[in-house]
């Protein structure tokens, strides 16, 4: 075993000129995929930040003479039943959709991680109580929980964020707790304690930094999941009716025209898929990069 490990590590120090052919496609594909994914995410973030620079038309501009036009050179992704440009709608809709995704990960991730860290580090009854609560929350499948919370809170952007955050919280708490527990048992923690470092400083300086990487991966993929959940809520009509609909609402509105104008539904869905796919690809890449087994000593 020892030798196998040294074989794996040896190539890190120096690259041999010959490359075996069968490893080539993997590297190329991985590179190609994550680069594309990065580009997609950056583009959609740009849409959310500065839609006016990207969208060719105003999303609220309704014109009777261009109702339900199929995709073409003037309107790339066609127009909807109010004569609005679908592409521009998607570009402007990015803001709300991405906001739900990022904000709920931030809220759910931070509070979940805190709970998990507390639970894992303190152990004892604190751990038991917190983890039983998490167990209970986990008995309700994520989407359904978000649905119930959103229904209870009533419509509103922040309410959707909160609903999605609560639904994702248990996952973060569990991962963080598991991480803390495993890091806590590693020898360098005992080492630090044995030189007389206080509990707090051991926790802040050693335990926490070493526990964060899987959380990062999860947060990355979580942005995708949150957007799926959030747009699902919008789709079911729990979102806020606004002038500029988010992607889920856009899709929901387009459903009625499915037989006459397929593009209204198809493209917002494609935007969601592309974004989620991209964060998943980036998350996978990140996981590989942070996996201690893959970049061992």
């Amino acid at each position: 075993m020892r030798e196998a490990a040294s074989v794996k590590t040896a190539w890190r120090t120096k690259r041999t000129p010959t490359t075996l052919q069968r490893t080539v496609p993997k590297i190329v594909v991985a590179r190609w995929m994550s680069l594309t994914a990065g580009a997609v995410v950056l583009f959609l973030i740009a849409c959310a930040l500065v839609p006016q620079w990207i969208a060719p038309y105003s999303p609220t501009d309704m014109q009777a003479d261009r109702i339900l036009l199929p995709p073409g050179s003037a309107y790339w992704l066609g127009t909807d039943y109010f004569g609005r440009d679908v592409f521009s709608l998607i570009v402007y809709g990015a803001r709300e959709s991405l906001f739900i995704g990022f904000a709920s990960v931030l809220v759910g991730g931070v509070s979940g991680a805190l709970l998990g860290a507390l639970s894992g580090y303190l152990g004892g009854w604190v751990d038991s109580v917190l983890m039983r609560i998490v167990d209970v929350i986990m008995t309700i499948p994520g989407v359904l929980l978000a649905l119930a919370v959103a229904a209870g809170l009533g419509p509103g952007l922040w309410n959707i964020v909160l609903a999605v955050a609560i639904a994702s919280l248990p996952n973060y708490a569990r991962i963080m707790r598991g991480q803390i527990l495993s890091v806590k048992s590693r020898p360098f923690i005992t080492a630090s304690r044995s030189i007389g470092a206080s509990e707090l400083s051991v926790f802040v300086k050693h335990v926490l930094p070493n526990s964060l990487s899987p959380l990062l991966v999860m947060a990355c993929i979580g942005v995708g999941t949150s957007i799926l959940t959030g747009s699902g809520l919008s789709f079911l009509g729990l979102g806020v009716l606004k002038e500029i609909p988010d992607w889920g609402a856009l899709l929901s509105q387009g459903r009625g025209y499915l037989t006459v104008a397929w593009w209204i539904c198809t493209f917002p869905g494609m935007a969601i898929t592309l974004f989620v796919l991209s964060v998943n690809v980036i998350g996978d890449e990140l996981r590989d990069a942070l996996d201690p087994r893959k970049r061992r000593e």
């Binding site: 794996k8 040896a10 190539w11 690259r15 041999t16 490359t19 490893t23």
Partner: peptide, 11 residues
């Protein structure tokens, strides 16, 4: 020889 992620290695 072993094929590794970054090329061939004679062991």
């Amino acid at each position: 020889r072993f094929a590794t992620g970054r090329g061939d290695l004679q062991v």
